[in-house]
């Protein structure tokens, strides 16, 4: 149990506190927990931040104190080179914030260390999902359905056209392309935090035990995953090896390096990309992707809507993504919902 000192200054509040849920306010720069003057995933530096997971648009640097899982704090330290103000909160642990607000961190199944945050105050329960998915992922703890009054959900893939196929199918396509082109390599663009490690772990699960070659920008994050007990098998750095050695192998790079000069050092690369956006042909074409792999760390449409049904909140608040469609779905299913206009979140999983 982690407790914040009562010495923290109480915020000045200019609106009545008696209305239901007035203690939780969506503001353009994040979700404000008013009695505690804490912010969830704020997009600018604040005194006290609760951070759901390590992706840059959720985990900004420079906060006075940051309450997050140990994994997320380690990821933030890797990125910002400091762990000043880090306050670890483990999965299942509840902390008490000023103003008598209780916060519990619950696995979100998105990336290593990702958490939903359950906030409780005056008998009211609010869950903030951050980013999440419902599919099994060997690199992180699975999402847990948590009943609540207000469910604050993401909507990155909030359109009915988004269906992520079983990851086994995508791995099979990747390995088939690799074995039919033994003189090439398959270059897979994958987000450096989460996606890359999941693709590697899934390849291992599919029986691929060859060395996997990494772009330099991937190395540290993979090591971090391994330090937290995620096994990734033999990994090598592209920069340490010759073109010849990489023929017939898989190379993983950040999406930004796919069409970059960097890829010229690879032997006849076939360009692949692991992203939920690959469901749409034009998105693949925009990036000159030859082998689109539909793999996402976010919930697809069926998961988003099923989760709302399972959590069964009084009201859903939709943070970022394609909020209009999810809002419409809620309306069609007689569920109360509103879209929040938060700034600073990007379509990750790019």
């Amino acid at each position: 149990m982690e407790q914040l000192g009562n010495s923290a200054p109480l915020p000045t509040i200019s609106y009545p506190m008696s209305a239901p849920f007035s203690w939780i306010r969506p503001e353009p720069h994040g979700i404000h927990i008013v009695p505690s003057d804490c912010w969830v995933d704020p997009s600018r530096a604040v005194e006290r931040a609760l951070v759901t997971h390590g992706h840059a648009d959720h985990a900004r640097g420079g906060h006075g104190s940051t309450m997050a899982t140990p994994e997320t704090l380690a990821i933030m330290k890797l990125r910002y080179n400091t762990d000043q103000g880090a306050q670890p909160v483990h999965y299942g642990e509840t902390i008490t914030l000023p103003g008598n607000v209780r916060a519990t961190y619950i696995p979100a199944g998105h990336v290593l260390g990702s958490a939903q945050i359950l906030l409780e105050h005056a008998g009211e329960r609010v869950v903030i999902t951050g980013d999440y998915k419902r599919r099994p992922d060997p690199t992180c703890a699975p999402f847990e359905v948590t009943p609540c009054d207000i469910f604050i959900t993401e909507a990155t893939f909030g359109l009915p056209l988004f269906t992520h196929p079983p990851i086994e199918e995508e791995m099979a396509r990747l390995l088939a392309r690799l074995s039919s082109h033994p003189d090439s390599c398959v270059l897979v663009g994958a987000y450096a935090l989460g996606k890359a490690q999941r693709v590697i772990a899934e390849l291992r699960r599919a029986g691929h035990h060859q060395p996997i070659y990494l772009h330099g920008a991937m190395e540290k994050m993979c090591r971090l995953y391994e330090d937290f007990g995620v096994e990734l098998g033999p990994l090598r750095l592209v920069s340490d090896h010759s073109k010849e050695e990489m023929r017939g192998h898989i190379v993983i790079s950040p999406p930004s390096a796919l069409n970059d000069r960097w890829s010229r050092r690879l032997p006849d690369p076939i360009t692949a990309m692991a992203s939920g956006w690959m469901r749409v042909r034009q998105r693949a074409r925009q990036r000159n992707v030859e082998l689109p792999l539909i793999i996402s760390d976010h919930a697809d449409w069926a998961e988003l809507t099923r989760t709302i049904e399972e959590v069964n909140p009084q009201e859903s608040w939709i943070t970022h993504g394609r909020e209009e469609a999810l809002l419409r779905w809620c309306q069609l299913h007689q569920r109360r919902a509103r879209a929040l206009a938060l700034v600073g979140y990007e379509d990750e999983d790019d």
């Binding site: 359109l159 009915p160 056209l161 034009q282 394609r322 469609a325 419409r328 779905w329």
Partner: peptide
């Protein structure tokens, strides 16, 4: 509406 939002996104 879901159709037109989808159509708009896919193009």
């Amino acid at each position: 509406l879901l159709w037109s939002l989808s159509r708009d996104f896919v193009g």
